Simulated assay, not measured.
Amino acid sequence: MTTVDQAKAMARRLRAALAARDLSVPHATALELAAASLGHEDWNTACAALEQTADDRIRFLETVPILRIFDEAKAREFYCGFLGFVPGFEHRFEPGLPLYMEVARAGLRLHLSEHHGDASPGSTVFVRMRGVHAFHRELTDRRYGYARPGIEEAPWGDVLEVADPFGNRLRFCQPRDAGTGHRPGRSAIG
């Protein structure tokens, strides 16, 4: 999102670019032009709208689910070996204490915790994604001994659900195109 300061800088750059072409405009005009280029009626309207995007406005930047695990080796086999996630950070307060780790893949980050109280076993995480059919083929090709997930065609999209060894479920969903009801990447006919 553009802030008021960024819009003012835009107006200064515009004014300088015009001056380099021997076109002189007052600063107020440059501000009005910057506001118009951002889709606002005038500078005052732009300022009111852009103030709402200031850093003190409440914004949720990311969600990172925490899933309870009980066995590090099984968690690594499932999340890294089967699902193809890559380990990120790992933390223990000292050797022999419970593990807290991150796994990530294609923009999705999950935290896995052996700590009692961090999460309840049997949780469900719903993940919107693209490429669910390719992901399904990849998982099927791995021939994991404890899961052979399929794809369910739900009204909201194609859903591939897997359960980890600790009872947590991950529902990967490729949503339908909101305008047509068809799945992105597939023809309307088939």
Rank of each mutant, 00 (worst) to 15 (best):
H136I: 09
G167W: 13
F135T: 02
C173R: 00
R143H: 13
R171C: 13
L108Q: 06
R183F: 14
E152A: 11
H111S: 06
A154L: 11
P121C: 15
E152Y: 09
Y146T: 09
S123K: 01
G179V: 13
L110V: 04
E138G: 08
S123C: 14
D158H: 09
P184Y: 14
A178S: 09
S113A: 03
V125L: 06
P121F: 02
G150E: 13
I151R: 00
H111P: 01
S120A: 15
F172M: 02
R176S: 01
R128T: 15
G181T: 05
P165A: 07
G150N: 10
R130N: 11
T180G: 05
R128S: 15
A119E: 07
F126N: 09
C173L: 03
A154H: 06
E152I: 07
H136E: 06
R109H: 13
G122D: 10
D118Y: 07
H116E: 15
R176C: 05
C173E: 06
F135Y: 09
L160I: 08
L170A: 01
R169K: 05
R128E: 15
F166K: 05
L139M: 06
R109T: 11
P184A: 07
E138W: 14
G117L: 04
P121N: 15
Q174T: 02
D141P: 08
S123A: 15
P165E: 02
R169M: 07
L108G: 05
G179R: 13
D141S: 09
H182T: 15
A119H: 03
E114Y: 08
T180M: 10
L112E: 00
H182P: 08
P175W: 00
P184N: 14
S120V: 14
E114A: 05
V162H: 13
V127Q: 02
G157A: 01
R128H: 14
R109N: 10
G131Y: 00
V132D: 12
L112W: 04
H182C: 15
T140R: 08
P155T: 02
M129P: 07
P175V: 05
S123V: 04
F126E: 15
E138P: 09
F135I: 02
V125A: 12
S113V: 03
T124I: 10
Y146K: 10
S113T: 11
L108I: 12
A163N: 12
L139F: 08
D118N: 13
C173G: 02
G185C: 12
V159A: 14
V162G: 11
W156A: 10
I151E: 03
T124H: 12
R137P: 05
G167P: 07
M129F: 07
H133C: 08
T140D: 11
G185W: 11
H133I: 08
